[in-house]
Design a protein around this nucleic acid. Structure first.
Lengths: 258, 258
DNA sequence: CAAAGGGCTTGATGTTCATCAAGTGAACGA
DNA sequence: TCGTTCACTTGATGAACATCAAGCCCTTTG
């Protein structure tokens, strides 16, 4: 499938490629192809050799890990996101499986071309380092969340974060099935149900996938969110990478403006 | 404290600086200084602004996170290791605290100088991206370990990994206090004790910090180690970064040789 | 329309884990 | 040498969580 110019532009607008020349960008996207996958498609299996950098342009992708017949969701991605960047940079096997939760448009860029381009274009290499730093910090947050908080607290903070990211309205819709959310939060679907029931006492009402946070202050007193774990950055218009999500609020006097 | 030439050489030998020119290296290390810290010194507090890239040259450093009066160990570093690289690249606040467990020699490199050098030297920027990828993959392993395995299984796998890294002998010494190990494995010291007691039935004997794995096959049947979670790479002679630890075993036909 | 399936919930039960409390042993200092 | 301290251990108890089982509700399908 050849790429449409519109898709190419969305990729060009990624922070990853913001500072690289047209020539380098053409080189990286030369052997690229765009593919549309139905829901539930496994794109990558744990341990598979990784030859491409994936870019999610539309849809939802879940990253998961398995061991001993158990599986857990490590991340749920929304557009525009790159994934398995670390494996591509190291030319190593992937540590996570990836599968679509909804029909998804996914761009695949040659890993070898990307590595080659990085070695000649410091701006691109720096942007990759920034993106990886953002991914790394996201994982640090996840790990702290997992090790330091209990199930109800994790859910409470997830809801607070979600509310902010979706615009701040007291009522919003969960972006995916509850069973996926349970796995993401490191609990069983049964316990997620019970956690929601517990949060009812804190003003959280649920009707299907619709959640209403009735008394934000009460919920916050339980959740105790902190910028050292929770990234409350709202989703902005343009396509942003994981790096930019970590640069907020921009500390005065450093980082790029706005 | 000015740097001794011997220390400078150890830094020069880091994979991070393997491919960069002497001029760039001089630039990055220009404002650097080496400092010796006693045990138990807090080098960095969660949320602190990060101005330097830290390089552990000697000693042991613990990275930890806290929330709600609880704390957990995220990583225990041994020489030669860099830390808080992601925060430096993004010029962001640190998400983890760092403190010495033993007397440690630590080199501090100007973060600004590093970022500047990366933007002009693609080899350096690429090396930073590789190191970050290694750190990222380490965290993915940790998170899978935490979410998918129980306490006893985590300990069993830790011991197997440790045995291999320390040379493969059936008897070896734990590299730090058990309370730190407990926190690293995400449990209380009490439960770590009980987990050791459980492993006695699987041929694991302990005498203080000395551990003997009597029946490796039996322990492995319990631990079910997998390269998708456990990195069994033995510690090699030269100074290696997190990136090289992730490139093993080097898949035939790609990556650098040996 | 009826049946079937799947996601979600609820209850009962058992396992895992944290907490509290007390005790052991070894290193250290007066 | 005798306390003191601190890491570690062991036991008892309770909280958090997983598992098993059943039922509900909504959607899908014949």
């Amino acid at each position: 499938m050849p790429m449409r110019p519109a898709d190419l532009e969305r990729v060009r607008a990624l922070p990853l490629f913001a500072e690289c020349s047209d020539a380098v960008f053409r080189d990286v996207t030369a052997g690229a192809f765009l593919q549309r996958f139905p829901p539930g498609t496994t794109l990558l299996l744990e341990g598979d050799r990784v030859d491409f950098l994936y870019v999610l342009l539309d849809g939802i992708v879940e990253l998961e890990g398995t061991w001993n017949d158990k599986e857990t969701t490590l991340s749920v991605l929304r557009p525009v996101s790159t994934f398995i960047l670390a494996a591509v940079v190291l030319d190593a096997d992937g540590l996570m499986s990836a599968r679509t939760l909804e029909r998804s448009d996914i761009l695949m860029l040659s890993g070898e071309a990307l590595r080659r381009a990085m070695k000649s274009d410091p701006g691109l290499a720096f942007a990759v380092a920034e993106e990886l730093s953002g991914c790394y910090r996201g994982l640090v947050r996840t790990l702290k969340n997992q090790k330091l908080r209990g199930g109800v607290e994790r859910l409470a903070n997830y809801l607070i974060t979600q509310k902010i990211r979706l615009g701040g309205e007291p009522t919003f819709t969960l972006p995916h099935e509850k069973r996926v959310l349970a796995s993401l939060l490191g609990m069983t679907p049964e316990n997620l149900s019970r956690a929601f029931a517990t949060l009812a006492d804190y003003g959280v009402q649920t009707k299907g996938a619709e959640v209403t946070i009735g008394r934000p202050a009460v919920l916050e007193r339980l959740a105790k969110p902190t910028p050292l774990i929770d990234n409350h950055q709202p989703v902005r218009g343009g396509p942003t990478g994981k790096a930019q999500r970590e640069r907020w609020p921009a500390p005065a006097g450093r980082g790029e403006a706005a």
